[in-house]
């Protein structure tokens, strides 16, 4: 055996452990999900497991609960992603402008992101509590009446979004701050010499330069937001009247409370199709940026 061949063989030995894990827990699941989605596969009725073609998909298309869950998911995405972007960008610009204590502020804003969603939800439930929560206490100090943050249909989703902003916007602000810091200062100096105001400098110079990073954060957060699950399941249990039950929570309930794995897999694929549209845009955008 030549030296070159031996090095190749050793190489495959080094690659093998990860490759095995990758095959069993990333590639195989995709195939299993495909097979399950065309089967009637109820763990409570194992004698009736059979191939049913596209019936799970046509059932899901007609399922009002799927529709409701997709609407709840879309509401979350549409409320969360734009507000996240505005808040994070504002904080990043603010952080970029202050010199003294910037790293301390950055750390404080980032800190909520390291807590588990379980702790985050407990904490916010305490703050949102109708009778003795902190928010309603403040409102009552100003003579207002208690707000049913989590039990009123029109308020529950915005309340979940607010918690998610607290939890996640620091991370996005940190990403945007890093991209602002990469802009050479001479661009802004030149704009100032030419007499451009701060808003003009921001919209004509800063924004175009950080556009690729903005696009990246919008897409990754959109993909994440489509999969929102523990936030709502812990804070509102999907209520009131299922108005905050997202698609992943519905998939979870079908698969692990009703044990209908085939049907759950089919809905999972439908959500995946929606998400992959954004995933592919992201892939293309990243390719184009790295090509430049």
């Amino acid at each position: 055996m030549t030296w070159k061949k031996r090095q190749q063989l050793t190489g495959y030995l080094f690659l093998a452990p990860y490759a095995l894990s990758f095959l069993v827990f990333l590639v195989l699941p995709i195939l299993v999900a495909l097979v399950l989605s065309v089967m009637q596969f109820d763990l409570t009725a194992t004698e009736q497991i059979k191939f049913i073609g596209t019936q799970n998909f046509t059932d899901a298309w007609k399922d009002d609960y799927v529709k409701q869950a997709m609407i709840a998911t879309a509401r979350y995405v549409l409320l969360f992603v734009p507000s996240l972007l505005v808040l994070s960008l504002a904080m990043a610009v603010g952080l970029n402008a202050v010199k003294k204590g910037r790293n301390v502020f950055r750390g404080m804003i980032f800190l909520p992101g390291i807590f588990t969603i379980a702790v985050t939800a407990i904490l916010w439930q305490f703050f949102y509590n109708l009778e003795f929560g902190f928010f309603n206490w403040v409102i009552k100090q100003f003579g207002g009446t208690a707000v049913p943050w989590l039990s009123e249909k029109s308020l529950a989703m915005p309340s979940i979004v607010l918690m998610s902003l607290w939890w996640l916007s620091g991370g996005t602000a940190v990403i945007l701050l890093a991209s602002l810091q990469q802009i050479p200062t001479m661009y802004h100096e030149a704009a100032a010499l030419d007499g451009a105001g701060s808003w003009k400098t921001f919209s004509k110079i800063t924004m175009p330069l950080i556009k690729p990073v903005l696009l990246f954060t919008v897409l990754t957060n959109t993909i994440g937001a489509f999969q929102m699950f523990p936030q709502a399941s812990l804070l509102t249990q999907g209520g009131p009247e299922l108005s905050t039950r997202g698609t992943v929570q519905y998939i979870y309930e079908i698969a692990f409370q009703q044990y209908r794995l085939g049907y759950a897999a089919a809905i999972s694929w439908m959500l995946t199709a929606v998400i992959m549209v954004f995933g592919i845009v992201q892939f293309i955008a990243m390719r184009r940026n790295s090509a430049q």
Partner: peptide, 15 residues
């Protein structure tokens, strides 16, 4: 890495 994590819930449970 582009495949959304939620797709893996059911099949990984099965495996």
């Amino acid at each position: 890495m582009m495949v959304p994590g939620q797709l893996f819930l059911v099949p990984v449970y099965f495996i």
